[in-house]
């Protein structure tokens, strides 16, 4: 059973990534092209999954939706890693007052429930997918800074790092040669378990109408769009949600597999 899960997860994520990257070429129709004479069509040859309330091709919208959602999650990942590594390394390497101040700032960010913080950030920055990405990244980076700081501190007292220092390696070289490789494992585990979580946040905030504006294809906003037709055409709500669910399942399974491989001591999927 366990052996089957990893290929399943890889397949799911590969499918979603493939859809995201190839959407412009494989989507049979323009995802924003409305055609009021073809509203709410059932699945048929021309439209494999049917059409929505504005006559737009559902399959094309789902494919383009993968693009928006995965691009957002990737951007969050990059921001969180950059911010977390920078702050965490600074705190760990410089120590003293810098460390104390940076860690209080981390504490402050960790005091607020993540979604509440994200909602507030969007209020301060304005709506739009970019700001949704920034808001989610800003409400999650502190855990990464903490982790990076911890690894940095524990590394500083290791003999082989002291040896490298004595041998005359510059700070930058030590960071590149010794610190980054030591960080890769723990960061990969933490991040892979968080990807699905971020995906759900992006979908939730888009659903609330805070992300991409309506004509665009994104899974969360598609569900919001389809709400008035929910009883008559439930597939318009069911399919984008299934896409979100499958992507998150894929991310979570991969995360668990990665954790089992790299760090078996971490607790079960907890988020």
């Amino acid at each position: 059973m366990r052996r089957l899960l990893v290929p399943l997860a890889t397949g799911l994520v590969a499918l979603m990534l493939g859809a995201a990257i190839l959407a412009p070429w494989i989507a049979p129709h323009d995802p924003t092209l409305t055609n009021l004479s073809q509203r709410l069509l059932p699945p048929a040859a021309g439209h494999w999954l049917g059409t929505d309330h504005l006559g737009r091709d559902l399959l094309s919208r789902l494919l383009w939706g993968a693009r928006a959602s995965l691009a957002a999650v990737t951007a969050i990942l990059l921001m969180v890693l950059t911010l977390g590594c920078t702050v965490g390394m600074m705190a760990g390497l410089l120590g003293g007052v810098v460390d104390a101040v940076l860690m209080r700032i981390c504490d402050a960010f960790m005091t607020v429930p993540t979604l509440v913080l994200a909602l507030f950030m969007i209020g301060a920055l304005g709506t739009g997918l970019t700001n949704v990405v920034i808001a989610i990244a800003l409400s999650h980076w502190a855990w990464y800074a903490r982790l990076v700081r911890g690894v940095t501190l524990s590394l500083r007292s290791q003999d082989y790092v002291t040896a490298a220092q004595v041998a005359g390696l510059s700070r930058l070289a030590i960071m590149r040669r010794h610190l980054l490789p030591a960080l890769a494992g723990p960061l990969a585990v933490l991040a892979s378990l968080d990807l699905g979580h971020w995906m759900l946040h992006v979908a939730g905030l888009s659903f609330l109408g805070l992300g991409l504006a309506p004509p665009a294809a994104e899974w969360g906003i598609m569900i919001n769009d389809a709400r008035p037709f929910f009883r008559t055409a439930p597939m318009l709500v069911v399919l984008p949600g299934t896409a979100i669910l499958l992507t998150v399942v894929g991310f979570n399974l991969l995360g668990d597999a990665l954790r089992d491989r790299l760090d078996p001591t971490m607790p079960d999927h907890v988020h």
Partner: peptide, 24 residues
């Protein structure tokens, strides 16, 4: 095994979408 599958779906499902399914 049953609860393992349930929990996996539980942590992966968008809460608002689950709401729609429950209503349905």
């Amino acid at each position: 095994h049953l609860t393992r599958v349930m929990t996996f779906l539980g942590v992966s499902v968008p809460n608002f979408w689950l709401g729609f399914l429950l209503v349905l």
